[in-house]
């Protein structure tokens, strides 16, 4: 459980994090979104005790991060941005170091070590020095390091950055498969990730929260939410006809004149009306589906103020 109240962090005159208040409950997987420089990493650095806030408070399972950092840090597994690790160490030596400093010893260390190595697939590189590893393996070493002590809270700063699509899939799978009592915060600017793994999304921009809700709620803010996508074969389709339907707000036609998107009035469902109108006119539909909403469109709208 993470409790953040009135968190503010300034660097000189620049306010990186501006009065953030939120609470993450046990079992939640929170996607922390925002454009570069929005304050995602700064917030994570404060949560993990690497930076001190200018004002405000953070408590991790009732441990105050500023006053009692070590107790809070015991509860957290943290993957910093860029997954830094001691490059002169071998993967195995590095993970043993992390395990020992986290208080694991003997067989419990060995067991956790084995589990984590399997979980993130590090077996082939255990005896290699970290400096010789590819970006993908380095990232996985960072993840292994964060998971090693089986923490109740995981804070991952861009965990899939620099991974190929297969590795991204693997990491998302891993996060989803974490036991349900863990609290996870992931920062990312890959929006599909939010749909894929998160139970909640929090978008920040210029250090402030602009939206906080489920990925579905986020999608519902898109103008594409419940819009109907159509593709016809044959001539004679008049897109303007759809505008005569009561619940339709707008129609956008692609260059081919046969592919179009019909937008509903907010809160309305238009699939049946659109379909009936097409049937009545004898237009042959080749493709038809209802959009759930586009997160990138919402993201742009919320973080730039631009009406997308």
């Amino acid at each position: 459980m993470i409790d953040v109240t009135g968190l503010t962090r300034k660097f000189g005159d620049f306010t990186a994090v501006d009065n953030l208040t939120f609470r993450v409950e046990q079992g939640e997987i929170l996607g922390f979104l925002g454009p570069n420089g929005a304050g995602k990493s700064t917030t994570m650095k404060i949560l993990t005790g690497f930076l001190t806030p200018s004002s405000g408070a953070v408590s991790i399972f009732d441990h105050d991060v500023v006053r009692n950092p070590v107790s809070a840090q015991r509860e957290i597994g943290y993957l910093p941005e860029g997954a830094p690790a001691y490059s002169d160490m071998t993967v195995s030596a590095f993970l043993h170091f992390i395990g020992q400093i986290r208080g694991l010893r003997g067989t419990s260390l060995q067991n956790r070590f084995q589990e984590v190595v399997e979980q993130v697939d590090l077996e082939p590189v255990l005896t290699q020095r970290i400096e010789t590893l590819s970006k993908g393996f380095k990232r996985r070493v960072g993840l292994a390091q964060a998971l090693l002590h089986d923490p109740r809270i995981l804070i991952l700063d861009e965990p899939t950055d620099g991974l190929d699509p297969n590795q991204k899939h693997q990491v998302r799978q891993l996060i989803r498969n974490l036991s349900r009592d863990k609290t996870v915060i992931i920062s990312t600017h890959i929006l599909e990730e939010v749909h894929a793994v998160c139970t909640r999304a929090l978008i920040i921009s210029a250090g402030r929260i602009v939206v906080d809700g489920s990925p579905e709620y986020l999608a519902s803010l898109s103008r594409y939410h419940q819009a109907v996508h159509l593709r016809f074969t044959g001539e004679g389709v008049r897109a303007e006809a759809f505008l005569s339907l009561e619940d339709v707000a707008d129609v956008e036609v692609e260059r081919d004149g046969l592919t179009m998107t019909v937008f509903p009035q907010p809160g309305c469902r238009i699939l049946r009306g659109v379909n009936e109108l097409a049937q009545a006119n004898g237009w042959r539909i080749e493709e038809l589906y209802v959009e759930q909403g586009r997160l990138d469109d919402v993201f742009r709208k919320l973080t730039t103020g631009e009406a997308a």
Binding site: F50, V70, Q73, I76, Y78, P80, G82, P84, A85, R102
Partner: peptide
């Protein structure tokens, strides 16, 4: 950047 790792360990 390992300082961030070191100083966030308990």
């Amino acid at each position: 950047g390992t300082i961030e790792l070191l100083l966030t360990l308990p």
